[in-house]
Simulated scan of single mutants.
Amino acid sequence: MYGFHLALTPFPLLAHNRNYAYGMTMLENDDLDFYQEPQEAEFEAREEVIKVKGEDDVKLTVRSGKHGPIMNDLVETISREEPVAMDWIYTRLENEMLQVSYEISHAESLTEFRDGVSKIHAPGLNIMYGDAKGNIAWFGAAKLYSRAEGVHSKFILDGADPTQDHLMLLDFDQNPQAINPRWDYVYSANNQPEEVDGRLYPGYYLPEDRAKKIVQLLEAKDDFTQSHVEEMIYNVQSSNSAELAGIVLRNMSLVKMNDLEKEAIETLKAWDGSYKKEDIAPAIYFTLIYNILENTFKDEMGEETFDQFIKAHLSKRQIAKQIQMLKSRLIPDLVKAQLTITSGFAYGVDILAHRQTLACNGKTIAVLGSGLNCIYPQRHQADMLKI
């Protein structure tokens, strides 16, 4: 078995031999919770020393309680006086990664490989698998859990409320996964997986544009050579940036723009979504996006919180949502002209076109790449019924 190892780990985490190969990316699922502890809570304190080459040691006093370390002492941006503890599923369960790496690197079948993957608890990983027998698989590998009704993990939880402390661990069979799917490929781009236990699992996933681009490239052909795979790996064209830019441009007025601004708009209009090093349009696009996010959120968030927001995946996931709220000026007129709107039923602008057409009592056709008996994306099932 040839592959890549973590330091001091004897078994590879990404590897291949003549029989099978496997790789991984981050799942990006939410496996951290924060609790506001009562002021009267008791904490244990310990000293931590971080050795820094060529510099003085960094010394930290860490207070820990029932839910984990108190973050007020360690993170400057936590301004509240009440102690806030960080609870990570990684520290709640036994770490079996050494056993995992052994089992997946010594598996003699897809079933044995899946058994090894099922022992991963945190951090969550997307595990990709393929073998010489033609089997392919993707596993969202993590110990996923649900909470009591009404408990929202995106908020700081109440450390004194036992109902907010209870985790209902899910069986691995409930994890998102695909084994030899009928569409004949698996992929991952750190994107939001489909429903888990009937709901979208919370996380800090990347926007769907990379995943959508992968699907577009895979759906276009089924006879890939090595050079085709290389072209796909080096592809720098976004699946939705040009579309999102188009929505913004259709809702902009050129009346008060100077000549330089108008030139920038014309550059953006001609953009195909590629991010080549000589392209100017991407810089214009992201400047425009930053201004939209800043004008939308900064006044409510404040300078410090907005600075945190803009550096996180969360802001990237807001781009499409915010732009799609700029409703198309075209669809109402097209519906009025009794034209049928046809789109691809995918994430982003595709589903927006269907939904706005329906909202205008128009006719719309969804072109499905997966067939009527396998609706994808699954979260658009309700839209399918309306269409």
Score class of each variant (00 low, 15 high):
92 R>W: 03
75 V>T: 03
105 S>I: 10
55 E>K: 15
70 I>T: 02
38 P>G: 02
11 F>E: 10
92 R>P: 09
77 T>M: 07
34 F>W: 06
69 P>I: 09
96 E>R: 15
21 A>Q: 10
30 D>N: 13
85 A>V: 04
71 M>T: 09
47 E>K: 13
91 T>N: 15
58 V>E: 06
56 D>F: 01
60 L>A: 04
71 M>K: 05
63 R>S: 12
61 T>M: 12
5 H>G: 03
20 Y>K: 08
24 M>Q: 09
57 D>S: 00
96 E>T: 10
39 Q>R: 14
10 P>T: 03
6 L>R: 14
30 D>S: 01
104 I>H: 08
50 I>G: 10
104 I>Q: 11
4 F>R: 08
7 A>D: 08
100 V>P: 04
33 D>M: 14
29 N>L: 04
69 P>Y: 08
98 L>F: 07
13 L>G: 14
65 G>R: 01
12 P>G: 14
104 I>T: 05
92 R>F: 08
30 D>G: 00
30 D>I: 07
29 N>T: 09
25 T>N: 10
9 T>R: 11
99 Q>P: 02
7 A>K: 15
43 F>E: 10
57 D>L: 02
93 L>Q: 13
40 E>F: 13
22 Y>F: 14
79 S>P: 05
101 S>A: 15
6 L>C: 09
107 A>I: 05
35 Y>A: 08
46 R>S: 11
23 G>P: 00
69 P>K: 06
82 E>A: 15
3 G>A: 03
72 N>I: 06
9 T>F: 03
64 S>F: 13
100 V>D: 01
46 R>N: 02
108 E>V: 10
77 T>S: 12
84 V>T: 03
65 G>Q: 00
27 L>V: 09
84 V>M: 06
7 A>C: 11
30 D>W: 03
39 Q>D: 15
103 E>P: 00
89 I>H: 12
71 M>A: 01
20 Y>F: 14
103 E>H: 01
23 G>H: 07
18 R>M: 02
55 E>S: 08
54 G>R: 09
12 P>W: 00
10 P>E: 09
42 E>P: 03
